[in-house]
Amino acid sequence: MKGTFLQTVQSLFAISDEQAMWRVKMNDDPDAFAQLVSRWQQPIRNLCARMTGDSHVAEDLTQETFLRLYARSADYEPSGKFSTYIWRVALNLCYDDLRRDKRRKETSLDSDEGENLIRLPELAASEESPVVLLEANERAEQVKDALLKLPELYRTVVVLRHYEDLKFREIAEVLSVPEGTVKSRMAEAMSQLADLLKPALAEDQKMKKERIRL
């Protein structure tokens, strides 16, 4: 409650993202840019991590997003929402990286698949027993793999809606497509994920039974 009140008071005195970006554009204001970075660093890093499945790449892409934002601040038009603008910049960088990565994998003889992927130490409450924790981690790993198997367009919608909590209307603005298209992509993505996770779930249950038998 105290934190919420403090946040409310802080928010009363804070400038909006659009105002901050305008100051960056007009005066190269470093304080305004620092505010934008502090507000958006984590959401952008999360988006990049979900899209690429690689925490190191996500870190690089986040930095590149802010570099691009600063370098091209003169091109910023304050007619739309800043959030839509920054999501778009970050997503384009993710798409570029995924394309580069695809080419790298095609030309490389040694596949480094799985080497740099995000481990998910954050999964499950620490109070849980090791067995439960292990199972939860395995399931989370399966979910992450399934997400990475989705086509980029579907993955984008899932990440923005489910993890970044954007409304379908907001996603439509970011992707410049009709809201109905976003919803149908989301429906398709959910169906594909259900199919991808079904065999993993069956295997998981089989392993559980074997463990119980032992």
Binding site: R45, N46, A49, R50, I118, L120, P121, E122, L123, A124, A136, R139, A140, E141, Q142, V143, K144, L147, V158, H162, Y163, M190, L193, A194, L197
Partner: peptide, 12 residues
């Protein structure tokens, strides 16, 4: 079910 599963892998 997928929604529940997606909720399992949150970034820290």
């Amino acid at each position: 079910n997928v929604q529940v599963d997606l909720g399992r892998s949150r970034v820290p």
